[in-house]
Design a protein around this nucleic acid. Structure first.
Lengths: 257, 257
DNA sequence: CGGACATTTGACAAGCTTCAAGAGAAGTGG
DNA sequence: CCACTTCTCTTGAAGCTTGTCAAATGTCCG
């Protein structure tokens, strides 16, 4: 059992999200524009919204749910575990990320999805996924896009786990999380909400908790970052990028479903 | 520069693959059936076929090609490298795997694809990918499916790299490669062609070459497998599965494009 | 204030990497 | 056809990174 993580500085989920035509996420500028018609279709398709508390399983491992989700607000993670409990976090999910696509397509829940903060989800019926493709090929294209861009992140995480040392791994993760959150307008004064325990970081990086802690401390003492009261402050983002051998071209607009 | 690897026991690529309507891969039973109409569309879409020699770059890292491919025959790999040359193999590609989807969608070649054996590719024009979705939503759905099932493999590799020890990693890789090849009818007498150097295995597993070698030797001495003259013989598949904490439900039919 | 976590540190052990060097295999050219 | 070159595989030894164990401190919350 993992504890519930509260989210002190994180913008509280809007109690009730707006309709798709007035979706709060689309104003961030991070997503490709959609036609009014597409928005109306999405809205008709959407079962509703659902809040979930931090620590809850959005999709339990090895079980096949009946719903698909778009993460509207908050943080979540995809993970896999071995039979003896060792856990690997595959990637972290931010607002706009689509949840459940892999399970639907491979007909097999091979990983779990857990809310890291209190979360707000847009809910879609799983068995009607196919209608996206029929309704408007552009929506199908968008789904492939979303799937591919998640894979891009997992690819990078695999490189990190396989070939970066502990220092590089931690630096990489901090840079990535900051960049992704910043893109969504979640950064303020060079800092973002940081609702992760060091165990989360360790499980994402393939390191032990203790070693993750020591590495984090070293980077902090070098003046590269500060983590305090649930926020990550990027003191020297360039330094972290160099340390991580970080290289990424800026991401274009992402579709949102 | 990596050497050219010959493929002694591997079925030689058909000099010229048949038309899509008589595609040799569809007889394996591993792929979902397609309608005659879809096959004709694919055929009209296909630019042609291209053989490539082992060691050649199908898609160079950090470059954006103008073509998409289906691997028709042979083995390939997707990989990423750090600036100092450390390489991580993301996954191995077998016949039926689609190549280049991520680049197209994220408009950014973030990984390279290299032929491990002599290879035969079906070539499609990159800039017409969109037509798949317009022509027949089922084709778009199939593309998402292919993307998601590659991600499933990368997810598993990330778990392996992050949370399995050296012995488990090697066992896992052997089991996976065997299962995937077997599924395509490439296994004979409990063995498959194995065109990998130990450096490939090391780069896929996030291990050093030396440690990979020692681990392989240990598993071989335990009577779990034999690698000889370019073939992997699974002497004790169950033993390897147990050692790897391998768990996977049988895969249903995969779409083929 | 007490309990449950999360973070931090030190000491020690172990797994994995690096270095080095020889043996085997495979392609190349005279 | 054999010598030469270049990979690949194999093994031993030493060192370093990372993991494990243990315990103290800090923090949040009822």
């Amino acid at each position: 059992m993992r504890a519930t993580v509260t989210t002190p500085d994180f913008a509280a989920p809007t109690a009730c999200p707006p309709t798709c035509t007035a979706c709060g996420l689309r104003t961030t500028g991070a997503f490709s524009p959609a036609t009014q018609e597409q928005l109306l279709f999405l809205e008709s398709f959407r079962v509703g919204t659902r809040p979930m508390a931090a620590g809850q399983q959005i999709i339990p491992e090895n079980r096949l749910g009946t719903q698909l989700f778009t993460l509207y607000d908050g943080w979540a993670m995809r993970y896999k575990t071995l039979s003896d409990g060792r856990r690997q976090i595959l990637n972290f999910l931010l607002p706009g990320d689509f949840i459940g696509l892999q399970q639907e397509l491979t007909d097999n829940a091979t990983h779990g999805v857990e809310a890291l903060t209190d979360v707000l989800l847009c809910v879609f019926p799983r068995d009607r996924l196919w209608e996206f493709y029929q309704q408007d090929p552009r929506l199908g294209y968008a789904l492939t896009w979303l799937s591919a861009s998640q894979e891009r992140i997992v690819d990078e995480n695999l490189l990190t786990n396989g070939r970066r040392n502990a220092t590089e791994r931690v630096a990489m993760l901090l840079v990535q999380l900051y960049r992704r959150a910043e893109r969504l307008g979640l950064a303020a004064d060079g800092s973002i909400a940081f609702p992760f325990t060091q165990q989360h970081l360790a499980d994402a990086l393939g390191l032990s908790l203790v070693h993750t802690n020591k590495t984090l401390r070293r980077l902090a003492q070098l003046g590269l970052h500060v983590i305090r009261s649930g926020r990550l402050h990027m003191v020297d983002p360039r330094g972290l990028e160099t340390m991580a051998d970080y290289y990424d071209r800026p991401l274009g607009n992402v579709p949102l479903i």
